[in-house]
Design a binder for these strands. Structure first.
Lengths: 210, 210
DNA sequence: TCTTGATAATGAAAACATTCACAAATTTGA
DNA sequence: TCAAATTTGTGAATGTTTTCATTATCAAGA
């Protein structure tokens, strides 16, 4: 596939572009300019062109980008042509919210297995997703060849569960706990730290006042 | 207060440092070195020293940083000495999860008002937080002098509600919807885009394979 | 077929962020 | 008391990302 060196900052914006392209396509739009895209996704238009340019020229000067073209292209880059199954560990409040989050619609991602220790939840189906006991983790993840897990357990279980996930063969973890879990270097951990985000927002706001 | 120019990247790490300092303090630790901190928050130790240095010399050579000192300092910088009230709009799945999220414990942040359109939820108390009708938004936010709101509504209401929030005097929005809402430049919007995060993780994972 | 306005591509510069590496200060232990 | 060990603070180097500014190309209308 694309073995060109893509800057990390660019890679993080790709899904954003993709989502808006899907929207444009649904609207029946045929072409789009970097300026227009810029307004919608709130990224500088020059950055957008630069980002796109890493993949080779996709647009036409004086015309813009062809929506369908771009969409097809991004679909491949982002593996959107195949459904990605992910696991969810912890179906408490946050986990439950994530089960209801529609990843599939625009992103072709599906939570295909959930795990919990609470017997009140386990061995049931929540939102169409089977909830297994934690002890089934290794087996299910192996069976379903899942590589990505969402970690939504209380923080005192975070490291322990992470170890189990790694042992089960998980290669990417989206970590919703406030703990920075440690994992082998070939396992990618993406932290989603809500309290920190809020705190940062408050900090910037305070700065803005001066 | 601190009118020094702090790099954005540094600012984003401050809450992280703060949280670990609280933990250390609870543990009764008196001093901490940049190396030790580095392991816990997973930030390069040189970066930590650099970050701290923007605030002036806070540590002692050959000794490390005094936990209580540092904690007091960060508490002020991050406004942790006063309770910050925030509003939550939308008490559906995600909103509900956020109501249960304990921001107060380590961050001195409290959701003090929630809003929704669903009469099933409004005029009740959820998790100790009063849920008002959207029409009460301006009044309540004004009364309680709330400056920050968490936006957790379906995406087709996102822009509309954002406008109302801005009108009510909100200055910072943590946006959980996948839509990039637009707001005046004096209103800060922080996007928490779960599908994008997951998608990015998948992308990087795919890259790692080659 | 010209001309004009729109718009992508891109080299170069600037801004921003991280990392290295070491002197200076301090602690520790003998 | 002194030498060894520790650890900060920071100049300089390096790396990354954004922004600027120019050029090349295209569509469409006269």
């Amino acid at each position: 596939m694309t073995d060109i060196k893509i800057p990390k900052a660019t890679a993080k914006r790709l899904p954003l572009y993709y989502r808006y392209l899907v929207f444009l396509h649904d609207e029946g739009k045929e072409k789009v300019s970097s300026t227009e895209l810029s307004e919608a996704v709130q990224v500088d238009s020059a950055s957008i062109r630069r980002d796109f340019s890493y993949f080779g020229a996709l647009g036409k000067r004086g015309y813009g980008y062809d929506v369908v073209n771009l969409l097809e292209f991004f679909k491949k880059i982002l593996n959107q042509d195949t459904l990605t199954n992910v696991a969810l560990v912890g179906v408490g409040n946050m986990g439950h919210a994530l089960l209801n989050y529609n990843f599939k619609r625009t992103n072709n991602i599906r939570i295909s297995a959930a795990f919990d220790i609470n017997p009140e939840y386990t061995d049931t189906i929540m939102n169409g997703v089977p909830v297994y006991q934690n002890s089934d983790m290794k087996y299910q993840i192996g069976q379903q060849q899942i590589e990505i897990a969402i970690l939504a357990v209380p923080k005192d279980q975070a490291q322990e569960i992470t170890n189990q996930l790694v042992d089960a063969g998980i290669k990417g973890i989206m970590n919703f706990t406030p703990l920075r879990v440690s994992a082998p270097s070939d396992v990618r951990v993406q932290n989603v730290d809500l309290a920190t985000e809020l705190q940062t927002l408050i900090y910037f706001l305070e700065q803005d006042k001066h």
